[in-house]
Simulated scan of single mutants.
Amino acid sequence: MVEEIYLTDSYVKNFKAKVVKVGQDGVILDRTAFYPGGGGLENDIGKLVIDNKEIQVTEVKRQDNEIVHKINGNLSEGDLVDGIIDWERRYSMMKLHTASHIIASIAYNKYGAMVTGGHISPEYAKDDFNVEDKNVLTNIINEANDIIKKNIDVKVYFKPKEEALKIPGIVKLMGRNPPDVPIWRIVEIPGIDIQADGGPHVKNTSEIGHIELIKVENRGKNKKRVYYTVKS
């Protein structure tokens, strides 16, 4: 099994790894800090360096229980490489990702609303909620910004599935089946939110900055989409 470095430390920008397989779709490493995307969060990009030669990593995806790195060059099985994450892109998505958890928690706890879909890119995020009044989402963004200012540490830890399932609201995405694995990764913002989640997050809410509402769209009955970004 590949060592997924981002699961325990989202701040690793550079790492050493060995190429264990070369396939038509890309290369597989014995360990990686590249997030393969998932849960609406886009994948990382960056580069692999070998003998002072830079090979761009243009896409990373989970495929057949492996993490495949699509590259624009050639590598061979057994090659030792230095992986370098596009940190500006990653960090932007980390801030938006943690912001999305705060927003989802307020929607769930105060308004009984759940996320029905969403996407996070480096530039902005969008989330769909099963709410009727779009003003609710504006209020949620304002409340989320108040929480960010409290400088709350974000905790990441692991729990057996049976224990995690006992936590109310552990999965806040409507229609999402709980992870079918024995050990769940939990992301907790104490007093605010706790969710099963596999993606990178910031260590403290203060790193998010300020959530800026872009717009709210009506996507049908009891379905509103909110677009937002973060500013320092």
Rank of each mutant, 00 (worst) to 15 (best):
S105V: 06
E163D: 11
K166C: 03
D153M: 11
I170N: 05
G117I: 02
T138F: 01
D82S: 14
Y91H: 14
E143I: 02
V171Q: 05
D153E: 15
E162C: 01
K161Y: 03
I106C: 00
E66F: 05
V131Q: 00
E77H: 08
I170M: 08
M93P: 06
I84W: 03
W87F: 07
E66G: 01
V171F: 06
H97R: 06
V181H: 06
N130I: 03
K126T: 07
G112N: 12
M174P: 00
I120M: 06
R176Q: 14
N65L: 11
G175D: 12
V154G: 04
N142Q: 10
K61A: 13
A107S: 10
A144Q: 01
N65V: 05
A113G: 09
N177A: 11
I67A: 03
E59Y: 14
K70N: 12
D180F: 07
N109D: 15
G78L: 14
F158D: 02
I71Q: 12
M93I: 12
P160C: 06
I106Y: 01
K95C: 12
N109E: 14
M93C: 11
V60R: 12
S76P: 02
V136E: 00
K172R: 15
F158P: 01
E163G: 02
I152T: 02
D86K: 07
L80D: 13
K159C: 02
Q56T: 15
V131C: 01
N72S: 15
V156N: 07
I167N: 02
Y108P: 02
E132Q: 03
D127K: 04
L80K: 15
S105D: 09
I103S: 01
P168V: 07
P122C: 11
I152F: 03
Y111L: 07
V68F: 08
D86T: 08
I148Y: 04
N72C: 08
A104N: 13
E123M: 12
V154H: 05
L75D: 02
I167F: 03
A125G: 09
D127M: 13
Y108A: 09
K159Y: 02
T98I: 08
N135M: 04
K126C: 05
V154A: 09
A104C: 13
I120T: 05
N139F: 00
I167S: 03
Y124L: 13
V68R: 09
S121G: 12
P122L: 12
H119D: 03
K53M: 08
V115Q: 05
D146C: 08
N145C: 02
N52V: 04
N72L: 13
K166T: 08
T116Q: 10
L80M: 13
N74T: 12
V136T: 08
V131S: 00
I55H: 05
L80R: 15
P168C: 10
M93E: 04
Y124Q: 11
V156T: 14
A144W: 00
V171R: 05
E77W: 09
E123K: 13
